[in-house]
Nucleic acid binder design. Structure first.
Length: 298
DNA sequence: GCGTCCAGGTCTACC
DNA sequence: GGTAGACCTGGACGC
């Protein structure tokens, strides 16, 4: 079954998909030859659905693994709009960067929409699994969670596990099967808090809390520190924090500081002119070369 | 084959 | 409030 979702004029499918590493973590898959983003979506009520997303003129073409009713189709569209940030209003952001010639490319190319998961819970778990380890280990942990605890779609692919599914497993499972090491009790505790309703991470999307207060709440989750919290803030649409980590520091040194290590204060000063958009400008700046020039704009 | 280092950090105890 | 040291894993590297 095919669906079509119209996209905003400033939307760039490839820039959005490659905005950061999430496209490579299950249940996302990217076929770069056909430029198709595959994703398993689980509404919880019925069998999960695999969707294949590709870009057509001014729209996203969606191919689903099975036929859907009207309600299910609406839910799938809602999830895809959320994942691709189709309803994010970036006009102010693009006006801001366009005023700086060096950063005008961000607006021209439609960069700045950061791919995210259908739920904050999934983004949070993935963020925890990026801390203090190689990317290869992050992929291994996330693949383990999906393959061990995800629900099967009609095409055999698996969805991301629910908090309830994770909460049922003992800490030993996370250590022995997921290989998440010291993060194991953190993952277990997070899943239990979310599954029991004592922590509502989805409410962060619409929270009226000031940035500092929201960061504080995020850091109440064990294993979430500055890096993870500030990155999560970006995924819910707040870009005050720079989310500096070893990679962004090294990249800033290479691209902006003649290969020399720069202090966090210096990095902060460099992007301060972008005010509440500074975190997003930094990320676009650091990842400008992630898309081959010949593929830009398609 | 073995030891060491380190990667897209965070927590805790201690000062 | 600032800062060592510990924490898991797995790949790269040197010997």
């Amino acid at each position: 079954m095919d669906l079509t979702i119209k996209t905003p004029r400033d939307f760039n499918f490839r820039r959005t998909v490659l905005s950061h590493g999430w496209y490579a973590l299950l249940p996302f898959e990217l076929d770069k030859k056909s430029w198709t983003l595959v994703r398993v979506l689980d509404g919880g009520q019925t069998e999960p659905v695999t969707v294949k997303l590709s870009s057509t003129h001014g729209a996203i073409k969606v191919s689903t693994s099975r036929r859907l009713g009207k309600k299910a189709a609406r839910e799938i569209e809602r999830d895809i709009r959320h994942i691709l940030r189709l309803d994010d209003d970036l006009r102010e952001f693009y006006q801001t960067v366009a005023a700086n010639p060096e950063f005008a490319w961000v607006a021209h190319q439609g960069a700045g929409r950061l791919l995210r998961s259908p739920t904050v819970f999934e983004d949070l778990v993935k963020m925890l699994c990026t801390t203090n380890c190689s990317w290869a280990l992050t992929e291994k942990m996330i693949s383990g969670l999906v393959n061990e605890l995800g629900r099967q779609s009609s095409d055999g692919r698996k969805s991301f596990p629910t908090a309830a599914a994770m909460a049922q497993k003992p800490e030993k499972f996370f250590r022995d099967r997921i290989r998440s090491g010291y993060r194991s009790p953190y993952l277990k505790e997070l899943a239990q808090r979310v599954a029991s309703g004592s922590l509502n991470v989805e409410s962060w999307l619409t929270s009226g809390l000031a940035p500092d207060e929201l960061i504080k709440e995020m850091k109440s989750v064990k294993g979430v520190g500055n890096y993870a919290a500030e990155n999560l803030m970006k995924l819910i649409g707040r870009y005050d924090g720079l989310a500096l980590d070893s990679w962004t520091r090294a990249q800033f040194a290479r691209l902006r500081n003649h290969g020399r290590v720069a202090s966090d204060k210096k990095i902060s000063r460099f992007y301060a002119r972008f005010n509440s958009w500074r975190g997003l400008v930094l990320w676009c700046d650091m990842t400008r070369d992630w898309l081959d020039p010949e593929n830009i704009g398609k």
